[in-house]
Design a protein around this nucleic acid. Structure first.
Lengths: 181, 181
DNA sequence: CAATTCCTGACTAAACTAGTAGGTTAATAA
DNA sequence: TTATTAACCTACTAGTTTAGTCAGGAATTG
């Protein structure tokens, strides 16, 4: 496991998705502007997130990205691993021949530490962050302030088209069961 | 906080130091050979560890590196931070102006996660790993197997010179109070 | 004295980061 | 139907970091 800016960008973007998940897809252009990350770079990161089955893209106007699973079922370790391909844990590459055909001790110790770190990050879900008290209100307030009108517009349009009639999208997770690309 | 191979190398090397601390200084050449890390690269890493006050060097024949403090007082986060200079946590660099003069939400969330990670790694000491059952025995056994005779020789020589008479070096931590470079 | 080992600085190939550029494809709105 | 939107894809790139080499100097020991 390795944690760099790449992983941080991805976690940040995924949190953004999780916060706005109920309002429909979030465009990369939106995230790019809000978080100060270049659009093309975001596209590269999201290509990996998509391949890992963490997000799904919705094309066309009103499209964007949304979580492929409920926020409660996505943990931080997954996100980081999908963009920062795990670095080789040991020098001997599993062969374990660094000490006369046996694994040397420190490798084993490091592997243990590495596992513990992974377990720790696996235990933290996106939902845990989004559901902290005050976050939804703050989020909505700030989106209005900065000009994320797109989401509001999209949501209104969707309601007009009757999109929300047959799903519980606005309230939660049912949409996650729909088929994707 | 960022975790890369650099940090892994350092943690691995520090664990090696901790394991052999009772037998006296460990040479970088030793670690280099055992862990498969180039000597000069190790020297660069140890320059930082030394500046951070985590290790101290002992020059001359029979010299090497040893922990500057007892293994129980050195945690993993310190080691990683001393070689992998902490990356900037947020885009707005503490100015918090990324959303109309306010910190944007995800930055705050990421900062929280980052802190939790740091706390987690701070809570793990070198001693916790070294003192796991069976480690000292395994360590000694393997050192003999692979040809870490240097340590044995050094230790014998030290005993002959009476080095261990006035300290509890062979048993523990008293040597840590001696002055260094 | 010679050998050992830390210590320092300059240099470098390869990899990674963070982006740019220039498209194509699918869905929606006019 | 046509224009627009936004995902999706590929190739390229300046700058940084990684992981290392090389060449020497300084302290300590035998």
């Amino acid at each position: 496991m390795r944690i760099s800016t790449k992983g941080r960008y991805s976690v940040t973007a995924m949190l953004d998705l999780a916060i706005h998940d109920k309002a429909g897809p979030v465009t990369l252009a939106d995230i790019s502007q809000c978080q100060g990350i270049s659009l093309s770079y975001l596209e590269q990161l999201f290509a990996r997130l998509r391949k890992s089955g963490l997000v799904k893209g919705v094309r066309g106007p009103g499209g964007g990205y949304r979580l492929a699973r409920p926020a409660a079922e996505i943990n931080i370790a997954e996100i980081i691993c999908s963009v920062d391909e795990t670095m080789d844990v040991t020098r001997c590459k599993g062969e374990g021949n660094c000490q006369n055909g046996e694994k040397c001790l420190t490798h084993e110790l490091w592997a243990t530490l590495s596992n513990r770190l992974h377990e720790f990050l696996s235990g933290i879900t996106l939902a845990q962050f989004v559901e902290r008290p005050g976050i939804p209100e703050l989020s909505m307030q700030r989106d209005k302030m900065i000009g994320r009108f797109l989401l509001a517009k999209k949501q209104a349009a969707a309601i007009n088209r009757g999109v929300f009639k047959n799903t519980t999208d606005i309230a939660g997770n049912d949409l996650h069961n729909l088929k994707s690309n």
